[in-house]
Design a protein around this nucleic acid. Structure first.
Lengths: 212, 212
DNA sequence: TTTTATACATGATGATTGTCATGCATAACG
DNA sequence: CGTTATGCATGACAATCATCATGTATAAAA
């Protein structure tokens, strides 16, 4: 009885504390559509970054929202589910990779620079700034909703590499691109999993030597 | 008071129910050391398989123990933590890869067959039977305790590839091995993440053509 | 102007999970 | 042979998490 009364009192105190008007809506409004769209974009960016850094299961919805500057509440006003966000994040991240590729100088020099940058120590150590494929590909295979967007953009990336950079021949361009991409992604993944710094760099360097 | 007494009664009933002798030890014994060692090995095998198939965070300790034919209880009689099991599983799985490599015919033909098998549709679709590197490398980088064992065995695998198979020259053997391994792992990871069957096979085929 | 739909903060919920606690029969050890 | 340490099953616990519920002010629609 004592305990029950105590609980009731505590609940009442909590309720009273919560009814300060500034607790609702951040103090104001139904938010303007422009701001809402911007927040949506911010969620996507933070999610993509955090997923790359910690993996899909290493980041909670709350953490993503907090990184965006919101609470966990409005998440479902923006996305249907965590898995839907994962799919959009991958699409978003790989689109950026595609843009970066197409923004590179379309020459042998541009290609060599791109490879060097991809297989650099800096990229290896870039927490959330790295390539979506290297960060998440082995998890994507277990996420049905994500495989579609991933496939879509990977195809575009292969095509962009084949047509944008010079290769030994027109006919070999696509195959060469696939080989280069596989080696680059594989090397980055292995190098990042390795604890031994010099060995990790050896992996990056050897693969780079094979490509430039 | 009423509630407290009720709880005590429920507890007593539960205790009484638990005191059926068949509830303990599966019916018997302090288990013979030989059987215990065998169970330890089974846990390791099931864990390695399940981790490869579902990822580290996709499998619970209980599931692993159940797959081994035990309950979750004795897990901590066998391993210090889930993370310690992850480390041992990776060591175990990569040791098998190493053994398979060294058991392959030490010739150009043996090498070509190994590559073909690695980049086959069957290997791509092999749920838990696949290569530890392709299955878990991108998660290992986020698991401090696992990186050490992984590094150790990856070094051994690179050395085994370089010394076991014929390469263009003695001096190039190590670099060639690293390049081949990176391309194979990268190709398998990308192919598995892709939803489109023909595209996945194209990735495997192009990389294979580059290696044999 | 009136009505409606929505983005937000707070809080709740049910499920999952890594780890620990307990009691016991007996193999291993001295 | 007597003692002890161990591997097991059952159960409990605290934490974490994805998702849902609620109340609100107001932008947007009518």
């Amino acid at each position: 009885m004592m305990i029950v009364m105590h609980n009731v009192l505590v609940s009442m105190m909590l309720i009273m504390n919560n009814v300060k008007s500034e607790d609702f809506g951040g103090g104001v409004m139904r938010y303007p559509a422009a701001e809402t769209a911007e927040k949506h974009e911010r969620i996507l960016n933070e999610a993509a970054r955090l997923f790359r850094e910690h993996g899909f299961s290493g980041v909670s919805v709350s953490e993503i929202m907090k990184a965006t500057g919101l609470t966990h509440g409005p998440f479902y006003n923006h996305f249907d589910s965590k898995e839907a966000l994962m799919a959009d994040s991958v699409l978003h991240g790989m689109q950026k990779t595609l843009d970066g590729l197409e923004g590179t100088e379309a020459s042998a020099k541009g290609k060599a620079e791109y490879v060097r940058r991809y297989l650099s120590k800096a990229h290896m150590n870039a927490g959330g700034g790295e390539c979506t494929m290297a960060a998440l590909a082995s998890e994507i295979r277990r996420e049905p909703q994500v495989k579609g967007p991933f496939t879509l953009r990977l195809k575009a990336i292969v095509e962009a590499m084949a047509s944008h950079f010079p290769w030994s021949s027109k006919r070999a361009a696509r195959g060469d691109s696939i080989r280069a991409l596989s080696a680059m992604v594989g090397a980055l993944i292995l190098a990042r999993a390795v604890e031994d710094g010099p060995f990790a760099e050896e992996i990056l360097n050897e693969v780079r030597k094979g490509l430039v």
